[in-house]
Each structure stands twice: as C-alpha cells, then as structure tokens.
Simulated assay, not measured.
Amino acid sequence: MNKKIAVTCDENNTLTDFIGLSHIIIFENDNNDWYIRKRFPFNFTNIKTTQEIRDYTRNLILKLDDCQIIASMSINGLIYNVFDRMKFAIFEIDKLDKNMLNKIITDIYKSLHQINSNVSVPTVPVETTDGIYYLDLIKLQKAYPDISSKKALRKFIDTTPFMRLDLVCSHIPAWLKTSEYDSKLEISTKKSGSSLLASINKKCADYSHSY
C-alpha cells in the first residue's frame, strides 16, 4: 500500500469539508517524512443536482491518480457513497498535521488484514453510477491469476448496456484492439501512477445496444 493521503483544504491550506473545499492536497510519506506530492484546485461550487455531484466526485477521483485514501473534516451523502464504492479508505479528521497523517496510515495497516480477508475483489465491472462501470484489472488478476482480461470483460462488453467502462490496467488488452472491437469501441487512456486508466465507450453505431 502506498502512503498517499488526499485531504480537502480551503484557500488558506486549512482542513475543511467538501462545502468549503478550494483545493486538494495529496500528501505522501517517503518512509522518512510527509511531503506534498500534488496540489490542485477543485470545488463543488454551483453543483446542485444528484448527477452533478456524482460526476464531479468521479472526476475528482480520476485526478487522485493512485491515491486511495481521502480525509476531510466531513464527508457524507453522495460524495461518501461514490468514494466508498470506488474502494477508498475514508477518514473524517478534526486537524491536519503529521501526527494525524501517521495515525491514518497506522489505522489502515491495523485493519488491512481484516479488510483483505473480508472484502472480495470484483471479477466483473461494477456499476458506480447509472451506466458507468469500473474494474481494476490489475487487482483482479493479482487475486485471481486464472481469470484473463477476456474472461473478465468480453461477456460484459458484448451483452451489457453501458455508457462508459473505466478500466485500471497495465496495458490495453490486445483483443480489444482487434477489428471486432475497434469498430464498436472508443478507448482513451491516461497514466495513473504506474498504471493505466482506460475509459471505454461504445461508438454511436453500437448505441442501439446501450442506453
């Protein structure tokens, strides 16, 4: 587990909740000390509808790269649900300092064995919001080496109506680049730490089988 924690901060770099959020700071520990790995502006100003909140939260998660820990003064409702469904470790904290960051990591390590023994790794894409699915192919194949990318994805792509599939992988599976699927799918990619995040959409010609 990497030691990266995303924290919600206001414009004064002070801990805040998602209402007062001005930007996100990602702290990383290099086994000696904490330092700021990444800082970027982000807020939910003028975001009102349920769908907007879900979409903005998912956009935020994409910006966090391989960070899987979120800490805030308060996190609940739809925002909490999206982070929870994306398997984030979620913490509500009342102060921001090195001791608190260390405590978060300690708490995670203490519960890691229990989490690993009680939470199964999804073997098929999981719907995170209406029509949008997610699968971490790297975690899947580490947990189940006998499950190939084709076994995990082909039936889903062929039979499931979806708007977008977000796939974490080390590379795009070669079979998705064949003519059979090249005519059906649009695939865009971006680096996510040492992994690749692929967003897969059905082309217009195939929308008769989707939403």
Rank of each mutant, 00 (worst) to 15 (best):
K95S: 14
Y211T: 04
L153P: 05
I5C: 04
F88L: 07
C67Q: 00
Y56K: 15
D30R: 04
S194P: 00
I200E: 05
K150C: 06
R39F: 02
P122N: 00
L153Q: 12
S208L: 14
Q68A: 10
D10R: 06
T178V: 08
I24L: 03
L112T: 08
D146W: 09
W34L: 03
R58F: 15
I200T: 10
I115M: 08
S74N: 12
T160Y: 05
L62M: 13
V124Y: 00
I36W: 00
N32R: 03
D146Q: 11
L62R: 15
Y207L: 10
F162H: 05
Y56T: 11
P122C: 01
R54V: 11
T106W: 01
L185G: 15
M86Y: 12
L78S: 09
T50I: 14
R37M: 06
R37A: 10
R58K: 15
I93Y: 10
H113L: 12
I25N: 07
Q114M: 04
K202V: 06
K110S: 03
I187D: 06
Y56C: 12
V124G: 01
D65I: 07
Y144S: 02
T129K: 04
I157Y: 06
L62E: 14
N102Y: 00
R154N: 13
I36M: 01
R39V: 11
I75D: 12
